[in-house]
């Protein structure tokens, strides 16, 4: 009998974990390491760790071992946080692991993208327990169910590493992985200030998040946590606007689950026009101000 434990690092992640458990057809509990997981997702119970800060991976993984006992599936939403901690849990448990599941058919078969999303692999899990990270785009987001009982739990976090500094650059915009609208800029934006005013300006006008290509991040005009693509954030907004983005395979791997992709590029032969639902061949410095003025009109 499968028993799923969903590990929640950020409150909203419980919704996709519930969708994953539904796809597997099994019940689930949550281990809440966040400030308070959404508790309307139909969990059996919520183990609330009451943390203000998630410890480094060595301590975190060890601390999770005790509450994870007896579960066959230990699951978290894909993020840099989960990809730091979950392989370590798998190592401690000598467990199987599946990264970035986008589909589940029963308790031991999962679909996941490989080679920058150019191929979907079906993976059979041959032993339990199994540790899994899931991409939310592959599963329903559950809400509106009765609240589960919450049990406070104290986890023994002990590790050798020490965090000496932490910098978060929120900036008040929606989180990339949650945003309904994302505006992404590429290297043609000439500097950080231009990137912020042009790309950030349109994102704010649309109530959206800002994304960046690897080239834009590497050239220093956008912050690293904004990178979208195979090795950055995987996103799935309703509207994805890519301005001055050529459309590398690695970038497209991170956006292909978006509902509508718009490309604005002055090069009519840019590869992104092959993927975009709507393409506009134009200089972004002309097109974006025009979009903004016409949105207001």
């Amino acid at each position: 009998m499968s028993r799923v434990l969903g590990i929640v690092f950020v409150p909203h992640e419980s919704a996709a974990i519930a969708g994953f458990a539904d796809a597997m057809g099994v019940e689930f509990d949550l281990l809440d390491l966040s400030s308070g997981a959404n508790n309307d997702v139909g969990a059996g119970k919520v183990l609330q760790a009451g943390l203000t800060d998630i410890p480094p991976a060595d301590a975190c993984a060890k601390g999770i071992l005790e509450p994870a006992k007896g579960y066959t599936h230990i699951v978290a939403v894909s993020s840099m946080q989960s990809k730091d901690v979950l392989p370590r849990i798998a190592g401690l448990l000598d467990a199987a692991m599946v990264t970035d599941a986008v589909g589940a058919t029963g308790p031991s078969r999962f679909v996941r993208p490989v080679v920058a999303g150019s191929i979907l692999a079906t993976v059979e899990v041959l032993s339990e327990p199994v540790v899994i990270t899931i991409r939310p785009a592959g599963f329903a987001k559950v809400s509106g169910r009765a609240a589960a009982p919450v049990e406070a739990i104290s986890l023994p976090f002990e590790g050798k590493s020490r965090r000496i500094e932490k910098q978060s650059r929120g900036g008040g915009r929606p989180d990339l992985t949650q945003a309904k609208v994302i505006v992404t800029g590429g290297r043609p934006l000439k500097d950080a200030a231009t990137f912020e005013s042009v790309i950030g300006g349109l994102a704010d006008a649309l109530g959206g998040a800002v994304g960046a290509t690897r080239a834009a991040v590497d050239s220093g005009i956008a912050a690293n946590e904004l990178q979208v693509g195979q090795t950055g954030k995987i996103v799935a907004p309703d509207l994805y606007i890519a301005a001055g983005v050529s459309g590398s395979t690695q970038h497209m791997a991170g956006i292909k689950d978006s509902k509508v992709i718009v490309a604005i590029n002055k090069d009519p032969d840019a590869p992104i026009f092959e993927f975009a639902d709507l393409g506009l061949v134009a200089d972004l410095y002309d097109a974006i101000p025009e979009i903004r003025s016409k949105l207001n009109g």
Partner: peptide, 17 residues
Amino acid sequence: KTKTVSYASPPARGAGR
């Protein structure tokens, strides 16, 4: 502990314009 049993191409996005 895991074995990939098959590989497939992902569904293509509809052609844009």
